[in-house]
Design a protein around this nucleic acid. Structure first.
Lengths: 127, 127
DNA sequence: TGAGCAGGTTACTAAAAGGTGAACTTCGGG
DNA sequence: CCCGAAGTTCACCTTTTAGTAACCTGCTCA
């Protein structure tokens, strides 16, 4: 295998753009849904504070990973979708995902259980 | 392209293991050097505090990404090297790197300039 | 005997990230 | 003509992560 291309600067940049507690799950939804409204995203993701979700979305928009579109209807509708730049990251993310499932299955399972628990808590608190 | 495999839990796990200000550059060196002594690593990486470097190495060891070997010679020699699990992450990291170079070239250049500056500062303060 | 070296720890501080709850805006509907 | 809705902002707080500096160990060598 050849790691001549693997230089830490680019890796730093990519990881910086991915750093943030909720970015993986945000990306997950945006990769699967064309576009999604702010409030829907907020309701789907368990336990994020509105403000924090917004912070993350702003950062990602600033990095060019996602696109924000605002319709001036009332009440306002704001849609988020993945950009070309963001979508281009897909294969790399899939590679990480596969690595985790193959080499860190235990940790993945732990995290899943953990999230399931949190999700149940959140579900209770809704309707 | 098919993102059926791309589930945020595994991605979370992988990114958690990669999260840390100095992990990309640590990985960079370990990927290229078979094994490296603690102090050498510390001298090579500009501006890390010893403690922080140690923290990162401990985390990475705990995650199974790297292997620590201690020779009880005098003065002590401690070598760090990438593990199989860590090396298996290589292709995914390369993919991120390539993405950054293609889609975020500006940010990569900024970071490189920035690091070069810091590196010069550090070089002055040595020898 | 005591300076020096490699690796590591401790105690502390500073900065970044994440979180909470309330309030603002701008409109349409009752 | 006040209420509620979606998206956003504000003021404030807690937790996590990074950084500094001093000190410890166990040995060597001058």
């Amino acid at each position: 295998m050849n790691y001549k291309q693997f230089r830490h600067c680019g890796l730093d940049v990519a990881l910086t753009m991915l750093s943030g507690k909720w970015k993986p799950i945000i990306l997950y939804h945006l990769f699967h849904q064309e576009q999604i409204r702010f409030t829907d995203l907020w309701r789907i993701i368990p336990k994020v504070a509105k403000k924090v979700l917004l912070d993350h979305l702003k950062q990602m928009e600033a990095h060019g990973l996602i696109i924000r579109t605002e319709k001036n209807t009332f009440p306002p509708e704001v849609y988020y979708q993945i950009s070309e730049k963001g979508r281009a990251m897909g294969p790399a993310l899939t590679a990480l995902e596969l690595w985790a499932n193959e080499y860190a299955a235990d940790e993945v399972k732990d995290l899943q259980d953990d999230k399931k628990k949190k999700y149940l808590i959140r579900k209770e608190s809704l309707s």
